[in-house]
Amino acid sequence: MTMPFYVSPEQLMKDRADFARKGIARGRSVVVLVYDDGILFATENPSRALHKISEIYDRIAFAAVGKYNEFENLRVAGVRYADLRGYSYDRTDVTARGLANAYAQTLGTVFTTESKPLEVELVVAEVGATPADDQIYRLSYDGSVADEHGFVVMGGRAEQLHERLAGAWSEGMTLPQVLGVAVRTLGSVGADGALATEGAEREIAPTGLEVAVLDRHRDRRAFRRLHGPALAGLLDQHDE
């Protein structure tokens, strides 16, 4: 009989975390930025069907990086959670905080009890009446939750991109301004994964972008995708 092989809990958790982190860092980044009239989500995604950014509820949106099948499953669960809660109580009783908690519990349980952690990182954002009321939660593979303010970067090169955004983003920016910042940040990671120097970022065509906003001035459903001529127009506005 072979001796059971002892692995310390520290080592076990570390291995799992490394595994998840590696999977997440492989993908392209998603950036989330607050602007004067709402919250902007942007990522580089040539597919028009496989979304990384989606609507969850009236004022709540979801963005994810990592393995598609895993975060898609969580997204659908989130839509079901929100719709069920809104149906049994009221539409105003569906909050990003509640959803973030449910996701955190799910991610945390999978991380500790199942053989493989979920290789995903999520943002759950809720747009408020003013920028001060916006809520942005960032959830990691292990179930940890961070309450973010202003902007979030997830995915490959997240730390370096975070630094760039910290320099470029400021409160009260307009939609074309934050869109410009977002696209420049996404373009600073080259096709080979290397970081470009500031000012030498890659150009990303509008067709290669997935962009959506939570517009705080829209009635009821605040989520709106930006693509085609509308997106190109906004990008041009920034360049001028």
């Binding site: 499953n73 669960a77 069920l84 809660r85 449910a102 519990q105």
Partner: peptide, 16 residues
Amino acid sequence: GSADTSGRLPDAFLRP
């Protein structure tokens, strides 16, 4: 408790 939020998302929610 259809709107129970205390714990993780129930399996039914995650079922494709």
